[in-house]
């Protein structure tokens, strides 16, 4: 999957200081499911899935998702943050194979 780790953030186009802003973040990721062998036994291996999503705003952690394989393939996550000052909103996705993918949005006030 050459597309693994592509990230899209959706942030409202018009934000005013003090708004509570809802953001959606999508990452292209297989979120591997548990496999079973011919005998029905769970295959023991390091399944590749995102297990942590960290949202930071102005360098401070706003929200963290600890996730399991119960989250869908190509997952999206929605969350909010209180837009107090212009600056950077960053969403990091960490997977179980050491992969780290991130999306950054520059928050400006209109």
């Amino acid at each position: 999957m050459s597309d693994i780790g592509k990230v899209r953030l959706r942030v409202p186009s018009s934000i005013k200081a003090g708004d509570v802003v809802q953001v959606r973040a999508l990452v292209i990721h297989p979120m591997e499911r548990i496999e079973r062998d011919a005998q029905g036994k769970i295959v023991q291996k390091n399944y590749n899935y995102i297990n942590k999503v960290i949202v930071t705003y102005l360098g401070k952690t706003v929200a963290t998702f600890d996730t399991t394989q119960n989250v869908a393939e190509n997952p999206f996550f929605t969350f909010t943050f209180k837009a107090t000052d212009p600056g950077q909103l960053k969403v990091q996705f960490l997977d179980t194979t050491g992969g780290r993918y991130e999306g950054i949005a520059d928050i400006k006030f209109s």
Binding site: S2, D3, K6, R8, L9, R10, R24, A25, L26, I28, N74, F76
Partner: peptide, 14 residues
């Protein structure tokens, strides 16, 4: 048509 909702849009960019 929202790329954070529809992964196909991201793939179409290929």
């Amino acid at each position: 048509l929202d790329p954070t909702n529809n992964p196909a849009i991201v793939l179409a960019e290929d």
